[in-house]
């Protein structure tokens, strides 16, 4: 199928871009890497009135280093994240997750900002943002704001981004050496959307899990922060008993979507397997 027609705008400045979004509101659709939007347009499922191509805003493709944060520009590609040594050093969870994002020819164009703005519940980056307590940076003519990832993802393909706003970057706290993390997902074929995935980040100081964050993908209408499992694990000493209790909590709190291919119980079970594997890995 061929994409339906639309009006095309390619702003050459951020100001132009924000003015365009301000003018057209819901009628406008931002085109970043296009790796999710273009298939929807080719299916004629997405029919933007105005397509705002932000490819002419190279400043959105840069990474900004602040004192204790890293802001990854929205147009940074999956591939750039996968191959960046500095990201590997500062936010290794992202480096571990990146190879799971689709395939090489998708990673070369698909962007982190696009993935965050789309909020596909099976995508890797939204769950990573939750696990890492990232903030989403948004800009509009009304001014900029930061939204914690916990508050950003509101439902299936639904976020706190307003129609006149642009996701400009993702702000991650830099991790210190005490911070442990793990990313894993289960899919039937390499690069497929995961049946379930899990991103975990925590401090392992002394004998206890501290500030643990467990985020899952593929098991709800949005990326899910596993608060039940997290509260079991927080301040708990790693042990098989802790793991089992956390898994019970996770199993009880997940509400996976009903899908003929993967019934809810199955996704829930895979999520529990992923948590078990993650905790075993952390416990060495």
């Amino acid at each position: 199928m061929k994409a339906p027609d639309f009006g095309y705008v390619r702003p050459s400045t951020l100001a132009e871009c924000l003015a365009t979004l301000n003018e057209y509101g819901d009628e406008a659709q931002v085109l970043a890497g296009g790796q999710s939007l273009m298939p929807l347009m080719n299916f004629r499922l997405a029919k933007p009135g105005i397509l705002v191509d932000i490819g002419g805003l190279p400043e959105l493709a840069t990474t900004r280093w602040e004192t204790d944060h890293v802001v990854i520009g929205a147009l940074t590609t999956h591939d750039t994240i996968a191959t960046s040594d500095t990201i590997r050093e500062q936010i290794p969870l992202l480096s571990d997750a990146a190879p799971h994002v689709a395939h090489v020819a998708i990673r070369s164009r698909g962007t982190i900002g696009g993935s965050i703005a789309l909020a596909d519940p099976a995508a890797e980056w939204p769950a990573c943002c939750l696990a890492l307590s990232a903030e989403i940076e948004l800009a509009s003519l009304r001014g900029g704001r930061r939204v914690p990832a916990d508050e950003f993802f509101l439902g299936l393909y639904s976020t706190d981004r307003q129609a006149d706003e642009l996701v400009t970057g993702i702000r991650f706290p830099m991790l210190d050496d005490r911070r442990a993390h793990t990313f894993d997902e289960v899919s039937r074929r390499r690069g497929d959307f995961a049946i379930a995935g899990l991103a975990l980040s925590c401090d392992l100081v002394g004998p206890k899990f501290k500030d643990i964050r467990v985020a899952l993908l593929g098991v709800g209408d949005r990326p899910v922060l596993a608060r039940g499992a997290m509260s079991v694990l927080e301040d708990a000493e790693p042990s098989d008993a802790t793991t089992e209790t956390a898994i019970e909590a996770l199993s009880a709190e997940l509400r996976p979507p009903d899908d003929p291919m993967y019934p809810p119980d199955y996704r829930r079970q895979v999520a529990c397997v992923l948590l078990r594997r993650a905790l075993n890995k952390l416990m060495g």
Binding site: R188, R189, R190, D192, P260, M261
Partner: peptide, 21 residues
């Protein structure tokens, strides 16, 4: 679907074998 609608209408849903597996 229970109403007889095809749910696997794309290569994202209908899984064909790829090289790695």
């Amino acid at each position: 679907s229970e109403h007889g609608g095809l749910l696997t209408g794309s290569l994202a849903d209908y899984l064909v074998p790829m090289a790695p597996e």
